[in-house]
Computed example of a mutant assay.
Amino acid sequence: MTQIKLIATDVDGTFLNSQRQYNHDRFDDQLTRLAAVGIRFVVASGNHLGHLHRVFAPTPAVQTFVAENGSLIVNQGETLFETVIPNPIVNQVVTAILADDHLRPQVLRLSGAHGTYINRRDHPTDEASQDYFFNNIVRVDDLTQVHDTIYKINGEWPNETIQALAAKLNARFPGQIHATASGFGSIDIVAPHMNKAIGLMQLAKSWGLRKEQVAAFGDNDNDREMLEHVGLGVAMQNGTKSVRDVADLITPTDNDHDGVLNVIDAILAGEV
């Protein structure tokens, strides 16, 4: 019998396939079986909450979200925990990034409680992807004049540079932020010492669960801490080397072949 009582998963590159889809019927059946044996299911993503609601609308039994790389935790529509970046730090980081030709991204966004803010002069490389990931865009003239609760700063850079740039940002603002590559040419900047692992374990503790009872799936650098700090860290076969290196298990199949769902079946069968 498995000791796992909580399963958490990243979304893009992990739970979703390359067409940004998942097997609704199979997953819905799994949710029923998970609930029957007392295993909770949690979405742990760098994305904002509105996007996650839209992705999982076909399976409404999914009601727990560790969003914004751990900065916002919502269960059954109730905000349980939130960790924000203070507005003075947001303005300092935004000003510094935009003033430095070596740091300036194609697009810079602020992910807030009431919208995702973007300078009206910025144009993403892929407008369709922006429309997919951000269904709450608010265009402004100056990001430093945004007055909202800010969970995350997000930027687009060439994909091959994001690990090095994330390290440079952390060195530039020590103790003020935590920057992490989230894949697809994107870097997420959250409050210092915040990541998916912190958010997920905060949630697990509130439910009286130990880390040994938690399994988590991920594919990219912003999943690394989460996989390191749970009882069963599962890296996707298609994941980055840095994530696969810290995992307890690598999925036998990739995200285009139900990698997460196959391991969930193995957990339910007591094989993992």
Rank of each mutant, 00 (worst) to 15 (best):
L72D: 05
L72M: 08
N75C: 13
N75F: 00
Q76I: 08
Q76G: 14
Q76S: 14
G77Y: 00
E78W: 01
T79V: 15
T79S: 14
L80E: 10
F81R: 15
T83E: 12
T83M: 11
V84S: 11
V84I: 15
P86L: 14
N87W: 09
N87H: 13
P88H: 13
I89P: 09
I89H: 15
I89A: 14
V90Y: 01
V90G: 00
V90H: 03
N91C: 08
Q92Y: 03
Q92T: 02
Q92N: 09
V93C: 14
V94Y: 03
V94E: 02
T95C: 02
T95F: 03
A96G: 13
I97Y: 03
I97G: 01
L98R: 06
L98Y: 00
A99S: 13
A99R: 10
H102N: 08
L103F: 00
P105R: 00
L110M: 06
L110G: 03
L110W: 03
S111P: 00
H114R: 07
H114Y: 00
H114G: 11
G115H: 04
I118M: 15
R120P: 03
R120V: 04
H123W: 10
H123S: 04
P124F: 10
P124E: 02
T125G: 10
T125M: 04
D126W: 12
A128Y: 12
A128C: 05
S129Q: 07
Q130N: 12
Y132N: 04
N135I: 12
N136G: 12
N136W: 12
I137R: 15
V138S: 15
V138W: 15
R139Q: 14
R139L: 14
D141W: 03
D141P: 09
D141S: 13
L143A: 08
Q145D: 13
V146P: 01
V146R: 01
V146C: 12
V146E: 00
H147I: 09
H147V: 12
H147P: 04
T149P: 09
I150S: 12
Y151E: 10
K152S: 06
I153Y: 06
I153K: 10
N154M: 10
N154A: 12
E156G: 08
E156D: 09
E156H: 11
W157E: 05
W157P: 05
W157A: 07
W157V: 01
P158R: 04
N159D: 13
N159C: 10
N159P: 09
E160Y: 13
E160D: 09
T161F: 11
T161H: 11
I162F: 08
I162H: 06
I162C: 15
Q163E: 10
Q163Y: 09
A164H: 07
A164V: 01
L165D: 04
A166N: 05
A167N: 07
A167S: 08
L169R: 05
L169G: 05
N170W: 00
N170P: 00
N170I: 01
N170S: 11
R172T: 07
R172I: 01
R172W: 02
F173I: 03
P174M: 08
G175F: 04
G175C: 11
G175I: 03
G175N: 11
Q176M: 10
I177N: 10
I177W: 02
H178Q: 15
A179S: 14
T180V: 14
A181Q: 04
S182D: 06
F184A: 10
F184I: 01
V190R: 00
V190L: 07
V190Y: 00
A191W: 04
P192S: 11
M194D: 13
N195D: 15
N195Y: 06
N195S: 11
N195T: 07
N195F: 06
K196C: 08
